[in-house]
């Protein structure tokens, strides 16, 4: 039992479960409607687009890059898929074609950053602006909803299996596949090696540049999945579809990574769940929608500070020094060594 508790992974899992329980308790007290089956399905449905986007971003974060293009990519994907459906394509054709579009966007990012060595943040902002602008092309900026009803794209959101919408089931499938790929295969470990120590990775025979590029491609494809869920839930494609997804997506990935000390599929799913619970709980508690981003931003910063042992150490030292308390000498040596 003691061994079970001293294992850092178990400690972190336990702290996540505790945090989730506390949040659920808090929101149930604030509004009894929180703990109903109906609301649980609402949470699941609302978290699906962010879930896809966060899954894509996870790969980019694992190779230690940043992707700021996805608000543009999601808007582009939404308009592209909506345009294909308007043109009479079956959703089973339109969505894969749309994902091909996402693949191209991801390749633009990946080639520019990995092979042309452009800085990731600026490049993805630029690509985001280009594809966000391109989303106006399909309909001159107007909403697209023709053929939506007859094509069956709405079933993705409305159709249910055991009370869970098809979109969420696809999401869970995607997470399972991503989990196996990233955590159980050689390729997955290569992503981590590329992010953590690219030089060592390169000399152990990993094509570092390819893995960075592939991470962006995966991200680009999954952003279009997020767009597809959005248009099927909203019943139309709109040019601003991706706006406002930046913070929630980063919060999900980074909060999960902070709690579990490393980015990954399970950490991201935990983060997605936490963010979904918080925004749903806040809505039910009657908190102004406009303030949600402020709350989530606050949670992300505090989460990152609270769960990062290095930062926690330096903070507590600072506080102790401020109070005039001396640290034990041995402690400081360990700190310096690490």
């Amino acid at each position: 039992m003691k061994k079970l508790l001293s294992d850092p992974t178990n400690q972190r899992t336990a702290s996540f479960l505790l945090l989730t329980l506390l949040l659920i308790l808090l929101f149930s007290v604030l509004n009894p409607r929180f703990m109903t089956v109906n609301n649980m399905t609402t949470i699941l449905r609302n978290m699906t687009p962010v879930g896809f986007a966060a899954l894509g971003l996870t790969f980019v974060i694992v190779v230690r890059k940043f992707d700021l293009s996805f608000e543009g990519s999601i808007s582009f994907g939404a308009m592209f898929v909506a345009f294909l459906i308007m043109s009479g394509f079956n959703p089973w054709v339109a969505v894969p074609l749309g994902m091909l579009g996402g693949l191209v966007v991801g390749m633009m990012n990946g080639i520019a950053i990995s092979y042309l060595r452009l800085p990731d943040i600026v490049t993805t902002i630029a690509v985001g602006a280009v594809v966000g602008g391109a989303s106006y092309w399909f309909s001159n900026g107007k909403d697209i909803f023709r053929n939506f009803f007859s094509s069956g794209i709405l079933t993705l959101n409305n159709g249910k299996l055991f009370g869970v919408s098809y979109a969420t089931i696809f999401l869970i499938f995607a997470y399972v596949i991503a989990f196996v790929f990233l955590h159980k295969t050689r390729w997955g470990r290569s992503f981590y090696a590329t992010g953590e120590y690219p030089v060592a990775a390169k000399y152990s025979g990993i094509n570092v540049r390819l893995y960075v590029a592939v991470a962006f491609v995966i991200s680009g494809v999954l952003m279009v999945c997020a767009s597809t869920v959005l248009i099927s839930a909203g019943g139309k494609g709109e040019v601003g579809a991706g706006e406002g997804y930046m913070l929630a997506t980063y919060a999900a990935v980074l909060l999960g990574a902070a709690i579990f000390s490393r980015p990954g599929i399970l950490p991201t799913s935990a983060g997605v769940l936490l963010i979904a619970i918080v925004s749903n709980g806040l809505t039910l508690a009657g908190v102004d929608n406009l303030s949600h981003n402020a709350v989530i931003a606050g949670i992300l910063i505090f989460g990152v500070i609270a769960f990062d042992s290095k930062i926690r150490g330096s903070l507590s030292n600072r506080i102790r020094n401020g109070l005039g308390l001396r640290r034990p000498a041995t402690n400081s040596k360990i700190q310096e060594a690490s």
Binding site: A129, V130, G133, A134, W137, V239
Partner: peptide
Amino acid sequence: GIGEMIKG
């Protein structure tokens, strides 16, 4: 959109 694309 065109303006955005030019800037990007």
